[in-house]
Structure formats: C-alpha cells, structure tokens
Design a protein around this nucleic acid. Structure first.
Length: 251
DNA sequence: CGTATCCTGACC
DNA sequence: GGTCAGGATACG
C-alpha cells in the first residue's frame, strides 16, 4: 500500500489491462481504456479496499481478497506467472496485480460515489480503541471472532488477524462478543494493532524465509501453543477455520 | 443465522 | 482426480 503510493501517486497511467477472465469481467477493456492518460492523484486505503483516485474524479478500486498483491516491475521485465492485471505508467513503472486464485477485484468507477460497502472505522485508525469496540459489539450476540471479521464492526481484520489477535489477547474465539469485558477488549485492541502493525514483513504473506508460517495459531492445528505448550485446535465458525489455544484463550 | 459461489495451487 | 481454503456477497 505504501509502496503503491510511492510508486504511482502523481504519475500518469499509460495503460491498464487484464490477463484473466475473472478480472476481465470486473474491468472490461472499455473501462480500462478510460484510465489511459489519467493522472493518479492519490491512493486511499479504507479497510481492505484500495482506491486509486484519478484526476478526473474516477476511481480504480482494488481489493486483494485472500491472495492478491501488487508486484512492482518495469516494462522490460517478464510478467509474473500469477499476474492477473497490469497497470503501466507513462514512465517505466509497471504494477502487476498478482493473485494465484484470481479472486481479487479491480473495478473502474466513474465517480467516487457509493462504490464502497458500509465500513466501520479502520483498525488502524487512532480512534479505534476499547470504548469504540465495546460500543460496536454491544448488541452483537455472536462469537467474538466472526464479529471481529465483520467489516461493519471494524474494518481491515480478516480471518488470520482475527485469530492471531484473539490469541495474543488470550480471549476465546467463541466468547460472546457483547459479553467480553472491557479489560479484555482493551487487551484485544492492543493485540489487533500489534498484529496489523506486523505488516511490514518481507518474504511471502503467509510464510517466512524458511517457508514456515509465521503465525502463532493460524494454520497450526496440532502444533504446540508457544505460550503454554498445549495443542492448537481448529474449529469452524461462520464457515471459516478458526485456530486457537483452548487452554490460554478463555471466555 | 447458515450455506453456496467465485478460482486455482497445493496437497492428498 | 478429488478436496480444500479464503473475503465478500447473496440468498434461504
């Protein structure tokens, strides 16, 4: 995101094109053409959404879903195997949207009106604190983990970060959201900010240099909790895997 | 609330 | 050759 901003803000788009039918459906050639010669005024992040604002008021809206990422290259480089869409600037910069599963979205909007769904405050926002979270959860009689993933409660937290933050805060993913104590929510907010702040990590998104996952609980079913040594469990919540330590994460 | 859909690499 | 994972959306 910051890299994207540095690479493209105040630059001019030469061309945008897609390389996969799923992306072509989102951004038809006729829409992509409307981006040509547009100057990029600013890149905005809202939760997991990225909005590339053009000089004429139109917007290129990107969302990575699970596997998407930007890859920065130059026009002479070969395209990456999983490149699904390409943004080329009038300088030598090329930005590739890579996504092995092609579930990312990239859409053109003629104006910035009503292109985003209802989103709560960003987890990154300074205003995101225990008071905010307590209020956002007060009527949510569902488990805390799916509640945290609800972008109308707080924006920017997905399956992995929700599990990791709950582990750090020692809160059971099954705890009823509205019933979690203020003290625990204070811990949770700190944990969320820490987990999200870890984001400046190189190599892969889900693996470190050794190819191992670098999470405490995510995708670690059967492994030992680094805090207490007990086995990490996997359950399904809202049709998503939840990983947690049933010993040190309590309701 | 629950479940299906999209898409494909990775793994069995 | 089959199954699974995942965010957002849509629907029962």
């Amino acid at each position: 995101m910051l890299r994207l901003r540095a690479a493209i803000e105040r630059k001019t788009i030469a061309t945008v094109y897609t390389l996969h039918p799923a992306l072509a459906r989102q951004l038809p050639a006729a829409s992509a053409r409307r981006l040509r010669q547009q100057k990029i005024e600013r890149v905005e992040r809202r939760g997991k959404h990225q909005l590339i604002h053009l000089q004429n008021g139109s917007v290129l809206h990107a969302h990575f879903r699970m596997n998407g990422d930007w890859l920065f290259s130059t026009k002479k480089d070969a395209l990456h195997r999983f490149t699904r869409a390409v943004i080329e600037l009038t300088n030598d910069t090329r930005v590739e949207l890579t996504d092995s599963r092609a579930l990312s979205s990239l859409q053109f909007h003629a104006t910035s009106e009503g292109l985003l769904p209802d989103l709560a405050m960003d987890a990154n926002d300074d205003g995101f604190d225990d008071t905010y979270l307590r209020n956002a959860l007060k009527n949510r009689r569902i488990a805390i983990k799916p509640a945290l993933m609800d972008q109308k409660v707080v924006a920017g937290i997905g399956n992995i970060y929700a599990a990791e933050a709950l582990w750090r805060a020692r809160i059971s993913p099954k705890a009823i959201a509205s019933a979690v104590s203020k003290a625990r929510l204070t811990r949770l907010v700190t944990a969320i900010k820490a987990v999200i702040g870890d984001e400046n990590r190189p190599p892969g998104r889900y693996t470190d240099n050794t190819g191992r996952g670098r999470f405490e609980v995510y995708d670690k079913e059967g492994e030992s909790c680094s805090r207490c040594g007990r086995d990490i469990r996997r359950i399904i919540q809202a049709a998503r895997s939840t990983y947690y330590c049933s010993n040190c994460q309590r309701s």
